[in-house]
Simulated assay, not measured.
Amino acid sequence: MAAAFLSTANTFLPSTLSSSSSSSTTLTTPTSVYPHKHSAKRQLILCKAVIESPLPSSPILTKRSLSICLTTALLFSVAAKGYSEANAAILEADDDEELMEKVKKDRKKRLERQGVISSSNKETAYLQELVYKLSKVGQAIDNNDLSAASSVLGPSTDVDWVQKANTAFRKLSSSPEEKTEVDTFNSSLSSLISSVIRNDVESSKIAFVSSATAFEKWTTLTGLVSQLKGL
């Protein structure tokens, strides 16, 4: 709207392996909440203990150990993959549920806002008058005619059309972002009036663009941009 008004504007515990003086190996591991992972992990550590043991091993034990190692490694890989895929599926389901909840909340918010707007004909009329006022002021400033701009703006923000606009702002603003844009608009409008009174053309243009931009952002946030003519 500013351009239309003014052409210049994101840990297993290692398994604890204890070895005795005999050729047998005793493995101590904590209880796991995942039995299949616990068993597979235990077998892998056993394989490592057998292979690294300084005690001589018979060929039969060596072959058997190697077979256990290979089988365990395969089972552990399959179990880990299955666990990972199951975990991913759970996370994806959670994400989908969160997305659906957000969509529902956004839809409810839009419907509530539409209901408020539909029952606010008087406030919408106040805002339409604001659009016309800003349009005239923008044309006057663009022509360096600050006298004409002053006659439309009035001497201060206490004038009737500004007070009515703020009545509409208060009723139709709900989010912090919307209220921030209202504050920006009022601050910029006050600067605009002061600049026009001082006959400062450049400051008037800057203040006008700032106020018009804040108002345009507010109408977009509230959904009123399609309800007002001249935006």
Rank of each mutant, 00 (worst) to 15 (best):
T71G: 12
T71F: 11
L74G: 12
L75F: 13
S77P: 05
G82I: 10
N87L: 11
N87F: 08
A89V: 00
E92K: 15
D96Q: 14
E98D: 14
E101N: 07
V103G: 06
R107V: 14
E112F: 03
E112H: 06
R113W: 00
G115H: 04
I117F: 07
S118I: 10
S119G: 11
S120H: 05
E123R: 00
T124S: 14
Q128P: 01
E129T: 13
E129M: 12
L130I: 08
V131P: 00
V137R: 04
Q139F: 11
D145V: 05
S150T: 09
S150M: 10
L153D: 01
P155E: 15
S156M: 04
S156W: 01
T157A: 09
D158M: 10
W161A: 00
V162G: 04
V162I: 15
Q163V: 05
Q163M: 01
K164W: 09
A168D: 02
F169G: 09
R170L: 14
R170H: 10
S174P: 09
S175A: 03
S175I: 07
K179G: 07
K179E: 08
E181C: 12
V182T: 06
V182M: 02
D183H: 09
F185G: 05
N186Y: 05
N186H: 01
S187P: 00
L189W: 00
L192I: 02
L192R: 03
S194L: 01
D200K: 03
V201P: 00
